[in-house]
Design a protein around this nucleic acid. Structure first.
Lengths: 156, 156
DNA sequence: GTTGCACCTTGCCATGATGGCAAGGTCAAG
DNA sequence: CTTGACCTTGCCATCATGGCAAGGTGCAAC
């Protein structure tokens, strides 16, 4: 009793299902470091603290962290995740808003994929022409060493 | 021919076919900033200077810059570019070494592409199920908000 | 020959997600 | 009381890139 009176917040917090940052990290799959980072950039709210300054996370906070982790796993940018969280929080959202964000991201992914596939195609074609033996001649190097600017050529 | 060790004046250097960093940047498509950066990390040699300290680039130097730019456009990492430049410089290289580097990069690209395609597939599937209307219900948010995670479980 | 503009130099700051380390406080158990 | 695990803040580093600032240089026009 006197003991709890001295440090009531931590004792009550634990009893009330609150977790410290390490537990929140384990539960959400987000590192403690990144949890603090998300707080600093506003993706996570400034959670409660004990007298000693320890952060306290509720089940809801941990849920939010998991949400962020999943969104990141799908490749969403930080601003997009902020927007998604805002929509998640907003009961008056329209699913159209969510879908629009998702669609934008799908399109961005498509573009990045296309760029990498172009690189891959070019390189695979060059590699296919390369003997791959003891001789030094190699169309890969020849291509890299070409004179002139193939992508955008404008200076003169 | 070793590089000019005598630090000639700019005018003389120009007459000798040497370019200053701005010209080298325009000719190679690499920004002056990045040219200095490549020098600092050893991708480019420490080129000659005028008395005043201006860097002087030969046609060969500019060719090397173009090579770097092309390699970057194909997505090669800095260490890989360093390796490619080493092979380019080495007349006793085997094309097999070059091909191996290229193949490794093709494989890395394939992996990154596969990861992004997986994200894209997941997201596209979710988006397809989303009404996209005024209603707030949205399978995209529902998925992001799922409890449980594939790596770890709840607090113990 | 002076002025002015464009260009050069170095160096520091910032991005963005992430990890690492250090110094110091806190807590729980022996 | 000691110990070890965990918390706090804060700074450093990555990597490629751009931006800005302060100060020197080159060249052409007046």
């Amino acid at each position: 009793m006197p003991r709890e009176a001295l440090r009531p917040e931590l004792a009550q917090a634990r009893a009330g299902g609150m977790a410290n940052i390490g537990e929140a990290a384990r539960a959400s799959g987000v590192s403690a470091k990144m949890i603090r980072h998300y707080e600093s950039i506003g993706l996570m709210p400034a959670v409660g603290r004990t007298f000693a300054g320890y952060r306290l996370y509720s089940g809801k906070d941990i849920h939010r962290l998991s949400f962020i982790r999943r969104a990141r796993a799908l490749g969403f940018s930080t601003p997009d995740i902020a927007a998604l969280l805002g929509l998640w929080d907003n009961r008056r959202r329209s699913s159209a808003q969510v879908k629009k964000l998702a669609q934008k991201h799908v399109d961005e992914l498509a573009e990045r994929i296309a760029q990498m596939q172009a690189m891959q195609r070019t390189l695979a074609a060059l590699a296919a022409q390369c003997h791959g033996d003891e001789r030094p001649d190699c169309p890969i190097l020849d291509d890299l060493a070409l004179d002139g600017l193939p992508l955008d050529d404008e200076e003169s």
